[in-house]
Design a protein around this nucleic acid. Sequence first.
DNA 1: GATTCCCGAACGAACGTTCGAACGAGGGCC
DNA 2: GGCCCTCGTTCGAACGTTCGTTCGGGAATC
Lengths: 241, 241
Amino acid sequence: MSAARPLPQRKSDQKLQLILERAAGVFARKGFEGASMRDLSRSTGISLSGLYHYVSSKQQLLHRIQMDAFSQILEQLESRLAGVTDPEERIRILIRNHLDYFLTHPLEMKVFTHEADALVAPYRGEVAGIKRRYYELALKLFRDLQRAGRARALAPRVAVLALFGMMNWIYTWHHPDSDPQARELAEVITALFLRGALTAPGRSGALAPEPAHKNGRSSGRDHARLARDITHERKHVHGHA
Amino acid sequence: MSAARPLPQRKSDQKLQLILERAAGVFARKGFEGASMRDLSRSTGISLSGLYHYVSSKQQLLHRIQMDAFSQILEQLESRLAGVTDPEERIRILIRNHLDYFLTHPLEMKVFTHEADALVAPYRGEVAGIKRRYYELALKLFRDLQRAGRARALAPRVAVLALFGMMNWIYTWHHPDSDPQARELAEVITALFLRGALTAPGRSGALAPEPAHKNGRSSGRDHARLARDITHERKHVHGHA
DNA sequence: GATTCCCGAACGAACGTTCGAACGAGGGCC
DNA sequence: GGCCCTCGTTCGAACGTTCGTTCGGGAATC
């Protein structure tokens, strides 16, 4: 999982990797347009002009971050899908894979989710291409589920994009030290997407075809946590009370 | 529905309204940081310095747009909920109301969805406050559904934010002239959120407790449309082939 | 001695905002 | 009517700052 990306050998590769990491952080915090190359210079310790030895422009830097992230997530998904044939299980893998990458690379994920429109002419098309491959794969997965007679006749485009909405929106509210991790998050979203929030209408009293684990605490806790998250001023990164 | 906001009387109020509308458009197209007051000057026909007669700063302009949008959506929701007691129906109203506003004010919706973090100190808190009220209302609606024994024991915070994810993500892919309008969109999302994508496991052959209307066309159409949307270069506003 | 790495200084452009002067409509006063 | 003064409105020009990027020249490495 962490050895998927070839470790940088040469020293200059390491420095480029540092730049990419810090750039993802700076872009995530201030937005692509709001972040300056001087911010990045400060964050990396490399002089402003020194950055241009590794990167040809700010645009290319964003392009590189987005391409790396998408390539990785797509590649990992394809490898996890290999050999699995059950359509429902394949959807579960898609969700789990997306959230795994999301929560292990929150900065990169925010950048390629939130700054999808910031790229211009030459770079834009390339990112759009890999993004399309990803969405088309998801669409195919959903159609296979329908074709197997296991999914409702919902418009596949809307259903799939709604699913991506659930997942891609997470970066706006997820706090790693107080919110569920990838496993539980994937369980909730999978349950919602596949079976919905309602209990079966017939046997409304006797539920529990689902795991239903550790969710008795629908007390005031979530309430207070949500309120804090929505209000959260920009500074407080973690260290929750 | 359209007469909810008092029509501007005085001439200068009309001009302020024009500025707010165009600013929403400019911010939606270029992002808050990426848009300049000179862009807005060009878009309104008002001179750069002239804008500052109506607006005290760029930040205050964004603040005003976001507050107006959120006030309107929340106010309309509360009025639509009045008198309705069935928990499931109240959730349906929330979804329908959100999407109605979304699709009638796509620019404003994108601005307050995408630029939620662009505001700073004095303005930030106020927007956070009204946003919190909205999220807390949604959370209450979901808890009521659970308390009535009609919803699964999912973590309410995650479930509600997943629902908002489905809806708020729409601005990234929805094209008004080729995608479903609010009614159908609300139906799909409501169906997903409440009942999920899967058909009931027992009677997998005989489906159709849902309307299932006009979804026989799971042909290559959606596929092609999705591909186009994901790839869409910045220019092509409409006029789809 | 060539190549890679790195930086201080500067470039021109664009940014948000301010300033002072002009304009036009309106009202009281002669 | 003619006059002045006011007030809401508008603008060109400029302020100081920050932006992305470039350039020329040094150090370090092979």
